[in-house]
Design a protein around this nucleic acid. Structure first.
Lengths: 236, 236
DNA sequence: TATCTTATGTCTTATACAAGACTTGGTGTG
DNA sequence: CACACCAAGTCTTGTATAAGACATAAGATA
């Protein structure tokens, strides 16, 4: 008798995730039905079902009765909904636009190496941008990713939403992350960017995101001049 | 053909929740096993299992292999872990203490009526308190609840954590809520309470919590002087 | 347009065995 | 006899299988 393995459904789930990660099943694609998967994997339909259910809960899959099971596809809308937690006074979700953006590559600094699990010597792409909402500047962001993961990112156009771009053009799927929030006073340069007084209270977001395989993808610091907008957290 | 009812397992779940809400099953108690529940409700064990599974995911139940299924019991520790999202620089969870607290009852104001779904004329209990961490004042809070729901709350001792107190002494279980975050500048009185300069950036939390049946329980506004502490959000 | 057919996911039942936790009773030892 | 220890038994939830009824969506057909 060997060591106790993972439950069967967890093994099935791992195999299915591997197929998504390898690119065998692409975002938006229809995957085989429960019966065919069960037959191919040599397990029962119920076991496949449990694996698919968990993956659906983790937003890796989308299931539609009568149609089939699809690999979740990142769109600008879905990404804003999932990862941009700002709402206005009436509870309406805020959709920011990009006012200006700049991207450059450079050698990774120690802090960046730490955040992105880089060994040393690797280069990173740094994106700075100003996002607006309702015609006013809303957030100043500095984003850092590994250049090895996203070759050519610094040279191309930077879209308003990054994660769907990462998925479609680089095959990298962001599945989650941590966001650390603090309140800070606007410093001179920041105040100029955001068109507020020096010393105004800003909401600072310090975000680290992770991919399917648990490796860090991105480190981002955002400074937000809220106005009538708030950051919403659902407690549960 | 009648209208499509809820799936069986959802009906079972609703009945089980009702039994918890009515106080038939109290927090911490062992409930009957799957077999007995299934027999009593006239459904299969698998259907009961699905209901119990969802309730476990919602933290209403605690299941332990070999022991049984228990009604989730709120403790000061579990409530802080679930509803107090502050961590220090090293990622260690912050446990605040109460520095001082005051509670009084009064007639509900319009805004309070709105937040707590009160019809009019009802009274509320208002709790003001200062919480500290690491020997320094950390958050100034104003909390408002319906006095009808919590009779005598204003007269008794106010514990450091409220939700476990609500569950054990009033049979009211907090299951979730919304928290709206903004950054604000400290005003004079607030600055005095929190021992910071006037105009310092503070994190303001505007929280509304709900009970098992979806009715609002509490409205709370907290002003936090963060120091080296941050508010952590798990994105997913 | 309206209806039928087919493919798919969803729900319910049933059965069996695995694994964790506690109880019981025996067994050996002092 | 008193006690510590171990093994078996039994209760629980967890995992896996199989089979069928039902709901939904899309395309084919009338």
């Amino acid at each position: 008798m060997g060591p106790t393995l993972l439950p069967l459904y967890a093994q099935v789930k791992a195999q299915l995730i591997e197929r998504i990660q390898s690119g065998e099943w692409k975002p938006g694609e229809l995957i085989p039905n429960e019966f065919d998967l069960a037959k191919a994997l040599g397990v029962s339909q119920g076991t496949v079902r449990k694996a698919l259910g968990e993956m659906t809960a983790e937003k890796l899959l989308l299931r539609r009765q009568g149609r089939g099971t699809f690999v979740a596809e990142h769109t600008p809308e879905s990404m804003l909904f999932r990862f941009f937690n700002f709402y206005d006074e009436d509870g309406v979700h805020v959709s920011p636009e990009t006012i200006w953006v700049r991207s450059r590559s450079g050698a990774a600094k120690p802090k960046e190496r730490l955040k992105l699990w880089l060994e040393g010597g690797e280069r990173v792409v740094r994106i700075s941008r100003l996002r607006g909402y309702g015609g006013r500047p809303f957030a100043y962001e500095e984003i850092c990713v590994s250049e090895a993961l996203f070759p050519g990112l610094a040279d191309g156009e930077i879209p308003n939403t990054l994660y769907d771009h990462f998925q479609h053009n680089y095959g990298v799927t962001v599945t989650g992350g941590d966001e650390k929030l603090t309140a800070v006073a606007a410093q001179e340069q920041q105040a100029a960017h955001l068109d507020v007084e020096v010393g105004s209270p800003l909401l600072q977001l310090n975000r680290q995101t992770f991919s399917l395989d648990g490796r860090p993808i991105e480190w981002r610091v955002s400074l937000c001049a809220l106005g009538d907008v708030h950051y919403l957290v659902r407690l549960g």
